[in-house]
């Protein structure tokens, strides 16, 4: 039996295969820091990824809309929904068409630099992943993206 050093949860969401050291960023993007008990594992060995992070969120079932938000920083993450101690759903991250309030616009003269305006980016190209700011229309490649 495979044993994790992080204890198993009987109800909640497990986000696995997060690139190493990005767990805290994932929590930040999901906005779940005050959502009850979180168990964070950083730097597990992974056959696939070398090192990976894992997050377990107790008593909270994250929907697809929510978890897709982390596609920019953890595109290969897997989502496990656990109910009554059994795995109810396993899914992968899918890339949304639009990122709202996730990516920062790099254009210093963009209206989203002023307070109160939520950023909005649309995917205009998938390879390399390219996003266009809904407001100033500048494009940015995923590699250069700055997460809010």
């Amino acid at each position: 039996m495979k044993t994790y050093k992080v204890y198993a949860i009987s109800d909640g969401t497990v986000i696995d295969h997060i690139p190493a050291t990005r767990a805290l960023k994932v929590i930040d993007i999901l906005g779940i820091e005050n959502e009850g008990i979180l168990t964070i594992g950083i730097g597990f060995s992974s056959k696939k990824m070398g090192k990976k992070d894992i997050i377990k969120i107790e008593n909270k079932y994250l929907g697809k809309d929510e978890t897709d938000k982390i596609s920019l920083i953890a595109p290969d993450a897997t989502i496990n929904i656990i109910k009554n101690g059994t795995l109810k759903e396993k899914r992968r991250i899918e890339r949304p068409d639009t990122y709202i309030d996730i990516v920062k616009c790099r254009n210093p003269n963009c209206i989203t630099q002023s307070t109160g305006v939520k950023t909005k980016f649309r995917v205009v190209k998938s390879s390399p992943l390219t996003l266009r700011c809904h407001y100033c229309e500048r494009t940015v490649e995923a590699g250069e993206v700055e997460i809010l």
Binding site: N107, N109, Y135, C136, R138
Partner: peptide, 9 residues
């Protein structure tokens, strides 16, 4: 407007 995206907003 001098700021880009102002018209969209």
């Amino acid at each position: 407007h001098p700021v880009e995206g102002a018209a969209r907003l």
